[in-house]
């Protein structure tokens, strides 16, 4: 064995484990009420960004159905053409961040993402990747938001991995007002599907 490979193996570090975000993150991560500068907000796409503007609203609930008023939700998405980090798409980072209010509510305003390539030539229906952080959550919970008005959901390769009876927990429902509703149930009846990412 060479010295080089030996060193490489022996110095390979282990992953830094996750810990809870705790209840007191807001003044640093979502500091609007504290007058701090915000890294990202619930406004994912600035006015004027091309695409179908949508609003997603929801509430986070715990296993007793009690609203979770101290969670942080982050979203990550492609642009309407299905691109990440597209050059020249000013006003659109694809990244959203919101804390839940005291009633557990959150919302995002963005443009609807386009369809994406999946593995093996399959196509993924439009979706947002979601991280849920909260007191009592030791490791970020990963989920996805799909949209009820997308026919591509029926052939989406990720939704196909989810037991049919639970797929609805990943699909935001468009209401009469045009707003998409997406509640997050951390535990119990109607529990949201979470992924090992």
């Amino acid at each position: 064995m060479t010295t080089e490979t030996k060193l490489t193996t022996e110095t390979k570090p282990g992953l830094t484990p996750s810990q809870t975000i705790g209840p007191f993150f807001a003044y640093a991560l979502t500091p609007r009420a504290y007058g701090g500068s915000e890294l990202a907000t619930e406004q994912v796409a600035a006015e004027g960004v091309a695409g179908e503007r949508i609003r997603i609203e929801g509430t986070v609930f715990d296993g007793d159905g009690v609203p979770v008023g101290d969670a942080m939700i982050e979203t990550w998405q492609a642009d309407p053409q299905g691109r990440f980090h597209a050059a020249g798409n000013a006003g659109f980072t694809g990244f959203g961040r919101a804390e839940t209010n005291t009633e557990g509510g959150f919302f995002f305003e963005t443009v609807k993402p386009g369809a994406l390539q999946g593995a093996d030539g399959t196509q993924q229906a439009p979706h947002l990747s979601v991280s849920v952080f909260a007191r009592g959550v030791l490791v970020r919970l990963a989920t996805r938001i799909y949209f009820s008005d997308e026919p591509g959901n029926a052939s989406d390769p990720i939704l196909a991995l989810v037991p049919a009876g639970r797929r609805d927990t990943l699909i935001a429902q468009r209401g009469a007002d045009g707003v998409f509703r997406f509640d997050i149930r951390l535990q119990g009846e109607g529990e949201t599907v979470f992924f090992e990412a």
């Binding site: 991995l161 951390l186 535990q187 979470f194």
Partner: peptide, 11 residues
């Protein structure tokens, strides 16, 4: 009351 009871799905 906050940890999911269902197994995670491999993504």
């Amino acid at each position: 009351k906050r940890a999911p009871a269902q197994p995670l799905i491999l993504l």
